[in-house]
Design a protein around this nucleic acid. Sequence first.
DNA 1: ATTCTTGTTTGATCTCGATCAATAAGCCGT
DNA 2: ACGGCTTATTGATCGAGATCAAACAAGAAT
Lengths: 221, 221
Amino acid sequence: MLVRINTAPRKPVDGQLAVLAGERMFCSEFRYRRGSEIFGEGEEPEYVYQIISGAVRTYKLLPDGRRQINAFHLPGDMFGFENETTHRFTAEAIVETNVHLMRRTSILETVRYGGAGTKDLIRFVTQNLQHAESHMLLLGRKTSLERVTAFLLEMDERLQRPDVMILPMNRRDIADYLGLTLETVSRALSILRDEGLLRFDGNTQRRLELVDRGALARIDA
Amino acid sequence: MLVRINTAPRKPVDGQLAVLAGERMFCSEFRYRRGSEIFGEGEEPEYVYQIISGAVRTYKLLPDGRRQINAFHLPGDMFGFENETTHRFTAEAIVETNVHLMRRTSILETVRYGGAGTKDLIRFVTQNLQHAESHMLLLGRKTSLERVTAFLLEMDERLQRPDVMILPMNRRDIADYLGLTLETVSRALSILRDEGLLRFDGNTQRRLELVDRGALARIDA
DNA sequence: ATTCTTGTTTGATCTCGATCAATAAGCCGT
DNA sequence: ACGGCTTATTGATCGAGATCAAACAAGAAT
């Protein structure tokens, strides 16, 4: 029997960025090592990025080091667009990551001249906003078990429900995304495992299999 | 000595909506009673709103009634724009509220035909996103005292630092905005009062005066 | 004024998730 | 394979904020 795992990107990678800027736009490629910074909060935005392979986290820090991850970006996803003169958060490669990048000014020109990409740009920003709004509900009002379950279902969907899900991020990243500690994330995963809703696959804790998506969906209020 | 309070709107109310749609656009007026719903989550979006006077809360609910308020809207603010076919949250008047409203389709047409309002629309959505991103940091990582302080400073700024700030929303609204309970909000306010950073003005708890904005800013990490 | 309702504060106690701590399990390079 | 390092799990304890509860204050209606 064939087991689908999410090692290879499953979304078409050509889409959004090209649409946004018009097909003939120059689009170079770049590779970031695991853990390296792609851009920092407060820096001037030069490029817009689309992930070819790998994974990226974007986050904000408080002065004392507390971290809130806004979003994880997976193959096919765009990130880094700014309307202002500074980046509002930091972006880092979670694993070795290949991206397409394109000058931000190219995209702004598209908008200025009423290009076809304008609607897509509005849709892109709106989708980010939509994600942020549901994440506020999670952060403000959900329990730890609900948060972890919501995270699993979000990743499951974005990876197109693979049989075995390979998470690129560690427990601390998940915790900083969900407003929890890594211990609480680990405990919640253990509970879900003990109740038979998911399985850790083989001998590594980053591969997991959602056994009962229905029951998980019922937990995520 | 003249004491500035925020009973009257201080921002020009003409701005955004008119710019967005073009000056000649038809723009009617409407009044909502205290507590009444302006639109509900899941409904089809018909209008975009700009507040003339009053205040509005927008929120999401979980099935069991837990509520997360995304944002408060004050005189001059626009809200209710949707790119999708349904509203992503509910909007209610907090107090008696007068709005300008304009058909959503008019605004979408402006974008379709590459109107001057397109850039403003992108800026509008981006500002919402920006607010949501910093609110995620608050909800995920700040303490109750930091949250309440951040709320006070946010309102202070949006009301243009009046000498006496009149909050239109009650403690429960503030709590549901900050991911806390109303008791915790009340306790935090009492702490700030006891430490001399703010005063309750006269005999009502909704009027307050920020005595030491510097100290408040230092608390809000 | 008086009553009713709604909103706010304050206190007592509880609980969920944080913190502290130890162990275990992978991963990587040699 | 081995050792060194990072990541994850699990247990014990703590504490910030929730919950439960009561008293109090402020409007609004009569």
